[in-house]
Design a binder for these strands. Structure first.
Lengths: 148, 148
DNA sequence: GATAGTTGATAGTTATAAATATCAACTATC
DNA sequence: GATAGTTGATATTTATAACTATCAACTATC
């Protein structure tokens, strides 16, 4: 168990995060509303970002600014992540899962009643943390088909 | 072997296709330049579209106008289609294949020297014809992981 | 308890992707 | 061979997604 400060420790309030990324505070809130990012929150509901969150956000910014992929495009790409292979959910889970059925929203933006994910915290889940960019998504698709 | 006129038979010149879709001729040319569509061509290099082409284009239009996915987003999504599972290419093929490695362009926009695809006509390939929309792409990803 | 920073919401701005218009050179059809 | 339609290329327009500013109500820190 990691106890010291690491890349996942939330430390930056929204103003600092925005400044480090070179964007405005409302933009950060929008990315969250769109389901691209899940920052930590304080008891008083204030957002705090970790170094890993910033890295994820830089990745999102590259997709938007450099690769010219729209936010809805990014959401759709995230929705293609084969999450069922990552969390190893059951056939019943998949039947009950809106994320498995759809292709508009990332799985972590859904409620998951009656699935293995119901008890889990999406922002700690590998599906959310490990496949933030296209190359990694494609890498996972290759992997589940037996290749690398 | 199908001999009569079917959905894949090229019949519409560009003006007709544009009118049927409610878009301009330059827009149709742009979609082709971006690699979203591969229309048939006459001996004199003029485009002719089939009913299947129109259906594909309607699907692209929905992605852009309704789902708000940018053209580069659509290209990226197409690049995630696990084509290697569809054409059953060899490990050597995959090593030599820019489509397998990348995630910016659909595989049918690449030259495929030194792969099984070198001899094939991409616009007849299942990769191009069968996975024109997101739901179908996700369906294929599910399938190769053993589910439906 | 006063100051600084946050919240979500709405209204407004801006940057630019997507679409169109126009062109001279070429192809098709009668 | 004349008319209509096409080609690719470049320049221009337009629609709007992405972003920002501002607000009163709330939270944090001294």
């Amino acid at each position: 168990m990691e106890t010291s400060v690491n890349t996942k420790t939330p430390i930056y309030p929204i103003r600092t995060a925005a400044k480090l990324l070179g964007i405005s505070i409302p933009t950060l809130r929008m990315y969250e509303k769109e389901g691209l990012i899940i920052p930590h929150k304080t008891e008083g509901n204030q957002r705090i970002y970790s170094e890993a969150d910033l890295e994820r956000l830089r990745c999102i910014r590259r997709a938007i600014s450099d690769s010219k992929i729209s936010i809805n495009g990014i959401k759709t790409i995230y929705s293609l992540i084969p999450c069922w292979e990552v969390v190893k959910c059951s056939e019943d889970d998949r039947k009950n899962c809106n994320a498995f059925q759809g292709h508009e929203q990332p799985c972590w933006t859904f409620n998951h009643p009656n699935t293995i994910c119901a008890d889990r915290d999406c922002k700690e889940c590998d599906v959310y943390t490990k496949y933030s960019e296209c190359g990694k998504v494609k890498g996972l698709i290759k992997k589940i088909s037996g290749f690398n």
